[in-house]
Design a protein around this nucleic acid. Structure first.
Lengths: 165, 165
DNA sequence: CATAATATGTCAGCTTTGTTGACATTCCAA
DNA sequence: TTGGAATGTCAACAAAGCTGACATATTATG
């Protein structure tokens, strides 16, 4: 049990409060992924495909190596997913111009269509939650999430965020 | 539901803002699970075992049926996880007193020890994030997460939360 | 320049954890 | 008391992680 120093500033950090936060995170993440999961379950795809499609849309021309750093999976695991997406004509994999070992990844027209469908659904969920909670809550939400990331992930997050527009 | 109105109050709900929230959720969840994952990777367990242990600790005597509703997986999938935990002496599965079809689940002494180790690690992460973000941010964090849950999950969340102490 | 070391991506096979289907046991209601 | 519903277990399969081996391209070193 954390002997927490005096001062009412820290009173909200009881184990019980922390556990509620942990469980809120668990249940909320289920909601967060529910809509895209539902859309993809009809097709032969899953959450792994969604993640790949999302970040290729976000950074067109990204390499396999870059993508697996962002996703935090092995290249072998990502490769299986990418192969099906390429075979199905959703992703275009082009040999790198400078470095021929690399593959630059792009969404095809069909890929863009699916990406839009998935992100529309996920944004709708996020928008509804934001509206219910209000602007101040959204700010706090973002602050806690950023503080919860590993340092490496936080760097990735900022980098992608700031190169987007 | 806060009546959402026209005007600049909605300006923060741009697609770009929503997308940042989505990606923050993705990267933060990785951090959220990282410490328990690391602890369990040494043993023959994974995230599924952690979830089962967590909710058995939270509601001792819970049934398999109840647990799979909370976890949102099939009973067959949960059963495999529970079997290994029972075999390894971390969970005690007792035939129900009233209804002999049911199994009431409890952590053994070893189970309690592992649960504490896992939740200590996860709470430390959450505590650090809360401290960095501050009390107001924490409140907003919780509000957005609750609004993001599916209705069924929110009910489960409230119920577990309010029966704990 | 030649060749060894490194980096990138692919293929094959294994593990974890999700899924559906079949079934035994127990309970409950007609 | 008997047929249907509920609970949980066993078996087989699918998705998506993982490690290892390898082909190709690049870079560094002799």
């Amino acid at each position: 049990m954390p002997e927490v120093q005096g001062g009412e500033n820290l009173l909200f950090l009881t184990d019980e409060q922390l556990r509620q936060g942990i469980e809120a995170m668990f249940f909320a993440y289920r909601g967060f992924t529910a809509d895209p999961d539902r859309i993809l379950s009809g097709m032969a795809y899953g959450r792994a495909h969604h993640r790949a499609i999302h970040f290729i849309a976000r950074a067109p021309g990204t390499t396999v190596n870059n993508l697996l750093n962002i996703l935090g999976v092995t290249k072998q695991s990502l490769n299986r997913v990418l192969r099906t997406l390429v075979e199905d004509g959703l992703v275009d994999s082009r040999v790198g111009k400078n470095d021929k070992r690399e593959r630059n990844l792009f969404l095809t027209e069909d890929g863009v269509t699916l990406e839009r469908k998935l992100s529309d659904a996920q944004r709708a969920r996020m928008r509804a939650a934001y509206r219910v909670a209000g602007p101040d809550a959204v700010s706090g939400f973002r602050q806690v999430l950023e503080a919860m990331m590993d340092t490496d992930m936080r760097r990735q997050y900022y980098q992608i965020r700031d190169t987007s527009s």
